[in-house]
């Protein structure tokens, strides 16, 4: 048994470093950017100024449609459409790029609702206080609202990130040689499914444990101003 583990580990680890981790990191980064933008578009009320009001309403409609679309369809189907479907429309994507796009869009849709709820949870009083000091909306968001919202969004966003790490195993179905795909190939050779799949499960668990530790660290840092949670 140990022998099998030792011989398969290098290949699994290299798949992890080459695909699983970059896929998760990049998709979470892009997804987060998309999520913040989408959340802000849905959160900020349209201005009174008519020249800005209608473009904003259009943006809002697009943002709502995007969130609806990616939350209402299965992730695996989304990946299939992007990788196997789009070539029919003349768009041929490299599997890694297709997967990154799919995971980013999916994560962005879910995380945008997390961020929007965190923004809503900062009391109106904070906006009033900022406005009376003559902060603009952008300044209020940057200095006052977002720092408070991030603290609230951190645990559910960590959920999304951990979920995403495990979801990258779906990329195996669009020809990417990520960790799970490699474990399947090895199983075909050594006929040790229990061992191989348990091993790959353990590797996912290790990545997610590191992320959990990171979450605790970040929570401690962002909680420093909250009563009763002195770091």
């Amino acid at each position: 048994m140990w022998n099998t583990i030792i011989t398969s580990l290098p290949e699994l680890l290299s798949a992890m470093i080459q695909y699983t981790i970059p896929l998760a990191l990049l998709s979470f980064l892009f997804g987060l950017i998309l999520a913040v933008l989408t959340a802000l578009i849905k959160f900020i009320k349209p201005s009174e100024n008519k020249a800005l009001k209608y473009p904003w309403l259009v943006l809002r409609a697009i943002a709502s449609f995007y969130v609806w679309l990616f939350r209402s369809t299965p992730l695996l189907v989304q990946l299939f459409i992007i990788f196997f479907g789009l070539p029919n429309a003349g768009i041929q994507l490299d599997p890694f790029i297709a997967a990154t796009i799919g995971f980013s869009l999916n994560t962005g849709a879910y995380a945008s609702e997390t961020i929007r709820s965190a923004l809503m949870s900062v009391p109106q009083d904070q906006w009033d206080a900022a406005y009376t000091l003559n902060f603009s909306t952008t300044q209020t968001l940057n200095k006052i609202i977002l720092p408070q919202a991030i603290r609230i969004a951190l645990p559910p966003l960590s959920n999304s990130f951990i979920g995403l790490v495990k979801d990258t195993s779906l990329a195996s179905s669009i020809t990417i040689l990520e960790m799970f795909q490699v474990s399947q190939q090895m199983t075909a050779k050594n006929f040790e499914p229990l061992l191989m799949y348990s091993l790959v499960a353990a590797l996912y668990a290790i990545i997610c444990s590191i992320l959990t530790l990171l979450q605790h660290y970040l929570e401690k840092r962002t909680n420093k101003y909250v009563k009763g949670s002195a770091a």
Partner: peptide, 21 residues
């Protein structure tokens, strides 16, 4: 609205300090 708010500053019932600062 900027020049109007420049002239006044509000103190609130629940003070509304910024907890993150």
């Amino acid at each position: 609205s900027f020049s109007l708010r420049q002239k006044t500053s509000m103190v609130f019932q629940n003070w509304n300090l910024f907890p993150n600062l």
